[in-house]
C-alpha cells in the first residue's frame, strides 16, 4: 500500500514539521521513563568500571604501556564514551517494530501520510537527543570522577564528534530497521535479532577497541560491515586516536554507510509493503 501522502499535495515545510513533531514527541516520551534511565545508567557505569580496569591492565601488560596505539588516558576515555554511546546509538534497541508487524499494529504507521522509514528515523532521532543528555553525558561524568579522562586537543574534534554521533545513530537505526523488517517475511524476527545483537556486541568496538584484532579482520570489518561505524568510529574521533585527515575519512565512511543502509532500509520497506499481510482481525 502506498502512503496516502503520494496523492495529497503537501508542501516541503509541512512534511518537515511532521517529522520534527514526531521527534519531539519521542523525546518527551523518553523523558518520562526516568526510573529506567537511571537503572540503565547505573548498569552502564558498572560495566564501565569493569572494562576500564581490564583495558588498563591490558595496557599495563604491554611494554611501553600503550595498548594497540591507545595511551592509558585514551583507553579510559574510550571505555566511558563507549558505555555512553551504547544507550545513545542504541544498538540493543528492542524489537518494537517487529512486534508491531507480528501483531498487525504496524498498519497504523503505514496509514499515516508520511514515509514509514523517515517517520521511524525522526522518532529515533528524538530518542537519541534525549539519550545524549542522559545516557551519554552521565557515564562520561562518572568516568571523569573516577579516572583521568583524555581531553581532546583539536578544536575540530568537537564538531566532528557531533557529526559522527549523529551518523552512528542513523547507521544503527537503519540496521535495526532491517533486522526488525525481516518480521514482514518471517513474522518472528528473533533469529535475525539475535544475530544482530551478537555481531554488534562483539565487533562494534564496544567490548574492546577493534585495533586489538588482527589487521586483516579489522580492514574487513570497516570495508564490508557497518559495525565499526556504531561505536568504534565516534569513540576514535573523540579520543583523537588518528590524525585529523584519517579521522575525517572515517566520518566520511560513516556517511557512506548511513546513506547505503538507509537506502536499503527504504527499499526493503517498499518491498515489504507490496507483500504485507496485516495480522489480526
Amino acid at each position: 500500500m502506498r502512503p496516502v501522502a503520494a496523492t495529497v499535495a503537501r508542501t516541503f515545510s509541512d512534511r518537515w514539521a511532521t517529522y520534527a513533531a514526531l521527534a519531539a514527541a519521542e523525546f518527551r516520551r523518553y523523558t518520562t521513563y526516568r526510573q529506567a534511565v537511571i537503572a540503565a545508567i547505573f548498569t552502564n557505569s558498572v560495566f564501565g568500571f569493569v572494562r576500564c580496569f581490564v583495558l588498563l591492565a591490558v595496557a599495563g601488560g604491554v611494554t611501553g604501556g600503550m595498548a594497540a596505539g591507545y595511551s592509558r588516558a585514551r583507553l579510559v576515555t574510550y571505555v566511558w564514551i563507549g558505555q555512553g554511546l551504547l544507550g545513545t546509538v542504541n544498538i540493543w534497541g528492542g524489537p518494537e517494530l517487529a512486534d508491531r508487524i507480528r501483531t498487525g499494529d504496524v498498519v497504523a504507521d503505514l496509514l499515516r501520510p508520511v514515509d514509514p522509514v523517515w517517520q521511524y528515523l525522526a522518532a529515533d532521532l528524538g530518542r537519541g537527543a534525549f539519550a545524549v543528555l542522559s545516557r551519554l553525558l552521565v557515564p562520561v561524568v562518572v568516568g571523569a570522577i573516577a579516572f583521568d579522562l583524555y581531553t581532546p586537543a583539536r578544536v575540530a574534534t568537537y564538531p566532528l564528534f557531533a557529526l559522527s554521533l549523529l551518523l552512528a545513530v542513523v547507521v544503527s537505526f537503519a540496521c535495526r530497521h532491517l533486522v526488525n523488517a525481516s518480521a514482514y517475511w518471517l513474522l518472528d524476527a528473533r533469529g535475525p535479532q539475535m544475530g544482530w545483537v551478537a555481531a554488534s556486541s562483539a565487533l562494534s568496538g564496544m567490548a574492546f577497541p577493534l585495533a586489538f584484532l588482527p589487521a586483516p579482520v579489522v580492514a574487513g570489518l570497516y570495508l564490508a560491515t557497518p559495525l565499526p561505524y556504531l561505536i568504534q568510529v565516534p569513540s576514535d574521533v573523540l579520543v583523537e586516536r588518528y590524525p585529523l585527515s584519517t579521522t575525517a575519512m572515517m566520518v566520511a565512511g560513516q556517511a557512506v554507510w548511513a546513506a547505503v543502509m538507509l537506502g536499503v532500509a527504504r527499499l526493503v520497506q517498499r518491498r515489504a509493503e507490496r507483500r504485507v499481510v496485516i495480522q489480526g482481525g
Binding site: V58, V62, A67, M194, A198, F212
Partner: peptide, 29 residues
C-alpha cells in the same frame, strides 16, 4: 536448535573477549 546454538555463541563471545585481551597483552594483572 537455533536458540541453543546462539546461546552457546554468546558464551563464545564472552570468552573470545578474554582471548582478545591476551592477544594484545602478555599478562593481565
Amino acid at each position: 536448535a537455533v536458540e541453543v546454538v546462539s546461546s552457546a555463541v554468546f558464551a563464545f563471545i564472552d570468552i573470545g573477549t578474554v582471548l582478545v585481551m591476551f592477544r594484545v597483552a602478555r599478562a593481565l594483572g
